[in-house]
Design a protein around this nucleic acid. Structure first.
Lengths: 192, 192, 192, 192
DNA sequence: AGTTAACCGAGACGGTACGTCGCGTCTTGTT
DNA sequence: AACAAGACGCGACGTACCGTCTCGGTTAACT
């Protein structure tokens, strides 16, 4: 009466194969057939549980992310933002960057992929918002700031430059951005 | 209609077919075969002049852009930035937005498409930089500002929100962004 | 329903499902999965007891045949042959005909199916041979006749026409065949 | 304006590959994919011109048949029938036999294949009927005989035994059949 | 004025991957 | 131990497009 149960082994193998192929051959050249072959799995098993290759990669990224840390909190919001945003920027130049780039690309014409991307981002954004809220409560950030928008001001430039490839991102990019942007986010100095 | 020399008629038909299909069926479902069929053109003619569907669309977008205006200059940088960025943002919700979204998506795993996207953007960025330079010379913008980065701070939030779909863009989005961001771009007030 | 011992209920359901599907959808479109679903049975149960769909149908046909009569014997061999062969011919135009046709088709490239078909036929052929032997002993058939071959002369034309579809079988087909063939099978008239 | 033209080279390669695979692996194990691979041809090319593997083989058989002889006519109908039918019977034990068997099998549940099989047979049957007509006009065959039926009486036993595998066909099978059957086909002797 | 060569439409070609179907096996609880 | 349910690896299906390649058939430009 009970249905045969899903093979966790296959699930893992499929996700790893997808991530591996995406890194080795790029997102566009990664195919369901290729994933099935490398995972030693039937295509049917993939189609039974995922609607597209993007969905597999999204699950892979979420798995990895779940095993990772949150936003740092040293008490110094400027240092924490610099650390976190720079680390994200550096991540974009790794293997993960290529996967993430492919997913965002797919999301532009695949509603389901878009949902996954948004779901992944939501977590990071919320973490950043929360850190900013802590900083605000500590008097390090203006109280009248829309924190969601603040996140967009912080990460927008990175994504703009990285996705649209308008220029190479310098190592110290976020230092410059923060130097310009932060004064607009902190409380106005006492006018005395 | 002319042999031994390129048919302008076919070129137009192909670009229009590509744009039309992209709007009607979406970027991903637009195929070279479909474009050829709708344009009443042989596939060979397409492959002779363009390397990919993205290239056709890029040419179409460039055509359209060339027939459009540059950056406004009313003398009031804040008003001009507000006008231009808002107009861009509104554009993203039109048919053009879907084409542009598809191209940016394709650019994530297609080097040639990426080049085209960058080429298109370069023009807009340069126009914005130039307007900022004028404003700076007029004392409306800090002299020590990296203008390229300033553009990224202005458009980054729009692209971040629009491409990553983290939330719907409110109508007055750029008003808020500018309210927060501009104080950081204008010259510091005389401390006396 | 009953563990540790074969479920007769399932056996019946499977055979009936197989026959039903074969009649409704045709032999080629009848699948093991379809049979299992219609019978409300697990595929394992089918594979445990039968090697192929042909085997199920063969069992079904044998079941039906076992419930049917043998060769008629009115004492008049001509009448009996006419009755029996015509009845077989008529059977080929019923639902059973489609099943039987499918089985013979499968038998052409499936050794096991071929065996089943032959086994089923053997019974009918032996019955016919026996009837002919009785007739021979009664002086109605030549004593030097190879009875096995006689059966082939009788049924060969039917199968030839039915399987190879060279022409529609007229209602009175066997009357004509017997009119031509029988004189060759009966004892030569006394030359006085 | 003119459409690109069909590749005769591919057509030949496909037919030869199909016949070859059918001989080597058997009809059931011959697949469109296998044919395409062996012929060095895209699957599309096969599907563009043939509806099924049976259709390819039918074309192959027709090609071969067109290059073959008709019915012999030595003036002696008995000898000619013996020669022709025995040669057909021998053919069934060759590679061709396996192909022909497969096609007849497929024809039992594939309307298109059935049509092809019938079309092929029609030629042979007509040739036989014609030969019988010549013999009849020469006084060697009864004038009141349905010649189509006569063909069925001649070939029916062969197909019955070969397709239904009720027993191995002895080498001299047709000698026996003709010895029994022919007296029924020739004109009645003068009763004086 | 006639020749010629590049470009045109059409679409067949060898391929790759698609997403689906059914195979026969295996696994999981239930009876 | 046999059962229903159904997931699994596998192989073939028939389809959609890819990018390349003939095919005639136009003209524009150069003899």
């Amino acid at each position: 009466m009970s249905p045969a149960t899903r093979s966790e082994e296959s699930r893992q193998a499929i996700i790893e194969a997808a991530l591996g192929l995406c890194v080795e051959r790029g997102f566009a050249s990664t195919t369901i057939e290729g994933i099935a072959a490398r995972a030693g799995v039937g295509k049917t098993t993939i189609y039974r549980w995922w609607p597209s290759k993007a969905a597999i990669l999204i699950e892979g990224v979420e798995n990895a992310r779940d095993a990772a840390a949150g936003f740092p909190d040293t008490g110094d919001i400027r240092a924490d933002l610099a650390a976190q945003t720079s680390s994200v920027m550096r991540l974009f130049n790794t293997e993960f960057g290529e996967i993430w780039r492919g997913l965002i690309g797919a999301a532009q014409s695949d509603e389901a992929a878009a949902e996954g991307v948004t779901r992944i981002l939501r977590v990071s954004i919320d973490a950043c918002v929360e850190r900013l809220a802590t900083a605000r409560d500590a008097g390090q950030i203006r109280t009248d700031l829309d924190l969601e928008m603040a996140v967009e001001l912080l990460y927008g430039p990175i994504y703009h430059t990285w996705l649209l490839r308008t220029r190479p991102l310098p190592e110290a990019y976020m230092e410059s951005v923060l130097a310009t942007l932060l004064p607009a986010l902190v409380p106005a100095p006492d006018p005395h």
